[in-house]
């Protein structure tokens, strides 16, 4: 049980950057927000580094499908995080430590709700 997980969140400039205020309202200890120009910029290394540095979870916030200014950046990011979660799951890293959210500039409230649900699931897992 982890009452105050350390979460690193990548936010894309097209949507996530507009809802950073909502993300920061997540009711728990430490959340670090990293802005990227597009979610597709996030490479595999970017997911592993935070975990190596002690983060409990890595979240990605990207635009909705068919709303990405760079056409398929969000789709690439989603595939990448799912693939990584699957591969790392094989060596014992639980999948609750990764999450991918679709959001738009005016979807802050909904995002906060989804993230809160994910965080509560995370808290119940033995890391």
């Amino acid at each position: 049980m982890n009452s105050s997980p350390k979460i690193v969140t990548f936010c894309c400039a097209g949507s996530g950057a507009y809802v950073v205020d909502y993300i920061k309202k997540l009711d728990q200890g430490q959340i670090e927000v990293i802005e990227v120009p597009c979610a597709g910029r996030i490479e595999a290394y970017s997911f592993l580094e935070p975990l190596r540095n002690g983060a409990d979870a890595v979240f990605v916030v990207a635009c909705h499908e068919e709303n990405c200014e760079h056409l398929w950046g969000n789709v690439r990011a989603k595939k990448r995080i799912e693939y990584l979660a699957a591969k790392l799951g094989m060596i014992g890293v639980v999948k609750e430590r990764f999450a991918f959210f679709n959001v738009s500039t005016n979807g802050g409230v909904r995002l906060l709700k989804e993230m809160t649900e994910k965080v509560s699931k995370l808290k119940q897992v033995n890391l």
């Binding site: 990227v36 120009p37 597009c38 996030i42 490479e43």
Partner: peptide, 24 residues
């Protein structure tokens, strides 16, 4: 457009941003 998708996809990690390096 500066999206950086090529940076993430390049297998040789040969691409980087000019002027705005992304923090890891």
């Amino acid at each position: 457009f500066g999206c950086g998708i090529c940076i993430a996809e390049c297998p040789a990690r040969a691409i980087s941003f000019i002027e705005d390096e992304v923090k890891q």
